[in-house]
Simulated scan of single mutants.
Amino acid sequence: MDTAVIKSGNTSATLTFCDRDADYFTVVYESPSITLKKRVWGYTDCDFLVNLFSFIAKEWKGWQGAQEWASIEGEFAICATSDNLGHVMLTIKIKEFDGPEVWDSSVQLGIDASQTENIAKSVRAFFAN
């Protein structure tokens, strides 16, 4: 699969995984207000990212606390939380720490329980070898 797109259950925002190349992939967050894009070194940690979305799909009724994943170099991270109504909030952190203009950003993307299984399948297919 060339891309995995996670669409917000609340707005037109999306989180897209694309341009997979060996140990690297690109993550893009797009909303009417902002676009963030970063090439990420996934190394061997992509399996843990796939597991995060599998957990979200399995626990679609909600869970306690936060479930987190971060890339080895820290340029991309996701923190997933939920309520007991099946609403999942993804807090997405993207950083640029190389080069002359260093920046970091944190955005949130809400998804509904009904989306979680398809999201997990899409992410799993994207990161499959």
Rank of each mutant, 00 (worst) to 15 (best):
C46Q: 15
F48H: 01
V40D: 12
K38D: 06
W41R: 09
G65L: 14
E101P: 01
A70T: 13
E101K: 06
V123R: 04
A57M: 07
G99N: 06
S82F: 11
I56L: 03
L52T: 08
G42H: 04
D47I: 09
A125W: 01
D104Q: 05
V40S: 10
E101V: 10
D19N: 15
T11H: 06
S71T: 08
I94C: 03
G74S: 12
D83F: 13
D47S: 08
T91G: 05
Q67Y: 14
I56E: 02
D47Y: 12
S33G: 00
N10L: 14
P100V: 10
F97W: 07
D45N: 08
T3A: 07
V28K: 14
D98E: 15
D45W: 04
K61V: 14
T3G: 02
L109W: 02
T81R: 12
G65T: 13
S82M: 13
A70G: 13
A70E: 15
I92S: 00
N84G: 13
A70P: 03
D45V: 04
I111W: 02
I34Y: 14
I119D: 03
L49I: 03
K58D: 13
W103R: 01
A57E: 07
F53G: 00
D2P: 09
D23Q: 08
F55I: 00
E59N: 12
T16H: 11
S8D: 07
K61L: 14
A125R: 04
A70F: 03
